[in-house]
Design a protein around this nucleic acid. Structure first.
Lengths: 156, 156
DNA sequence: TGATATAGTTAGCCAGGCTAATAATTAGCT
DNA sequence: AGCTAATTATTAGCCTGGCTAACTATATCA
């Protein structure tokens, strides 16, 4: 009872394209001497907007608590973030970006950004506008997916 | 001497969007009982078109030889691929997909695809067409990046 | 033949992912 | 109040993905 869902074609395109882009970006990060991996990047990106608890970080990235805890420890050792026990609820640990963390994020972002911009150099204005629109759609759809999907347990 | 490169904005959008999509997809893969990680997926995807040597796999993913060798070992243990020493040049090891590997790829692809298709359900036809075009552009640009960039050593 | 280059593997390191078990705190129920 | 249950984080222990350095086996070429 499954007719040819028109979305499937785009879904397949996403599955082919996103890992490709991701591995180009990740390879570029590895080449650089910034000691950062995608997991760090996405966490820094979240923290630069506001401080978060470990649970919030885990939920919003669909990671287990132990995983995010270990990652934060690694980032703490690099001096990028700081753990603080919350005063309101002494169970929660808040994580905040340090000034060094902000600098690191900025540097790696500039680095990756300029590399990607080079790749885009030959795009026509129209292609670029299209790309921009497509990215915004992607962003909207997948950001919603992270929020709406059962983050930790809506069932039972 | 750097004027506001118009590509930078799109580049930044890519940096914000692709990791987001990637982590939604990766989380979905983890949730599933298919024992597969992104590194396996992208390798299966390459092998389903044709057999490759370890060097070819490493180059095309910008990975070191030891890394790809270890990954292939893990996939071999799952029964997805087979190593064969080449007859022409006995140094090279060719990797081929097994029937189980094809099945595994197909299953995980269907699984992820249907999940993504669900996320796209509310898109208008126009948004979807836009997205499709944007993805094709992305694919073209980044596939070219993998081929043109110094894969292993054009310098010196 | 003998030096050099190339293809893979192994060992050993660090980090990202997981589950299971534990500790500390809070919330809730009699 | 006081006991139980839920929540938040950490630790330990596992597997895998990344890397470099060191090694083996084969090919190439002077």
């Amino acid at each position: 009872m499954k007719q040819p869902d028109p979305h499937c074609e785009v879904a397949r395109e996403i599955l082919r394209t996103i890992p490709l882009v991701m591995r180009v970006v990740a390879a570029k990060l590895r080449q650089s001497d910034h000691d950062i991996v995608p997991a760090h990047y996405r966490t820094l990106l979240m923290l630069c907007k506001q401080d978060r608890s470990l649970s919030q970080l885990a939920d919003s990235q669909r990671l287990s608590l132990p995983t995010i805890s270990k990652t934060i420890t690694a980032m703490e050792q690099r001096g990028w973030v700081l753990r603080t026990r919350s005063g309101e609820d002494r169970r929660v640990v808040m994580v905040a970006l340090t000034p060094q963390g902000q600098v690191a994020l900025q540097m790696v972002q500039d680095y990756a950004e300029s590399h990607i911009a080079d790749l885009l150099a030959n795009l026509s204005a129209e292609e670029e506008a299209n790309l921009q629109r497509g990215l915004m759609t992607l962003q909207r759809v997948f950001a919603a997916a992270l929020q709406n999907d059962p983050p930790t347990g809506t069932e039972i």
